[in-house]
């Protein structure tokens, strides 16, 4: 069977949402920071067992988070990837509020948490971080680490919903 599902990427500015999507969809990484304006929609097809899932990926500008406008971008989403930046602990702080708000808006939304930019931490720092925050995935858009896994997991989750 073929399915189309909308998923959203949320998280504070500069955490690497656009970079994760670019790495996943186009296999590229850009060192430059071009802050997203509004939202950018991308698409990639994933195969989960015998099913084909067309992921419509809405990469929402960090700047817009919590605003009235971004809420309208969330509607209709089946899954959400919440992204934080390993090198900025402050980007982990609004996670609880965001998830609460999302669940109020979309009752059965599936959420995956991603701590990005692990390439900026040494081994010990990464272990410390993992002890303090328990996120689902630790990724590097720069090095292409664990990116496929993140999107495959969200595809699997939204397929069950």
């Amino acid at each position: 069977m073929e399915y189309s599902k909308k998923i959203i990427l949320v998280g504070q500015i500069g955490v690497g949402k656009t970079s994760l999507v670019q790495r996943y969809v186009k296999s590229i990484f850009n060192e430059d920071y071009l802050s997203t304006i509004g939202v950018k929609v991308d698409k990639k097809t994933v195969h989960v067992e015998n099913d084909q899932v067309n992921l419509l990926i809405w990469d929402i500008a960090g700047e817009a988070s919590f605003s009235k406008i971004s809420k309208s971008y969330y509607l209709g989403a089946k899954g959400c990837i919440y992204v934080a930046d390993c090198s900025r602990i402050s980007t982990f702080t609004d996670y609880v509020n965001q998830v609460k708000m999302l669940k109020e808006l979309i009752k059965d939304i599936k959420i995956i948490t991603v701590a990005n930019k692990i390439d900026l931490l040494d081994k010990q720092e990464l272990e410390e971080l993992k002890n303090n925050v328990s996120f689902d995935f630790y990724t590097s858009a720069k090095q292409g680490e664990k990116i496929e896994e993140v999107f495959h997991e969200i595809a699997k989750k939204v397929l069950c919903s």
């Binding site: 909308k6 991308d42 698409k43 067309n54 419509l56 009235k68 809420k71 309208s72 971008y73």
Partner: peptide
């Protein structure tokens, strides 16, 4: 044309203008 992509962007624009 990837209909899904164009439809997605149209909807983003629509949501934006309606809520803004």
């Amino acid at each position: 044309v990837d209909q899904d992509l164009v439809a997605g962007m149209l909807t983003a624009i629509k949501s934006f203008s309606e809520s803004a």
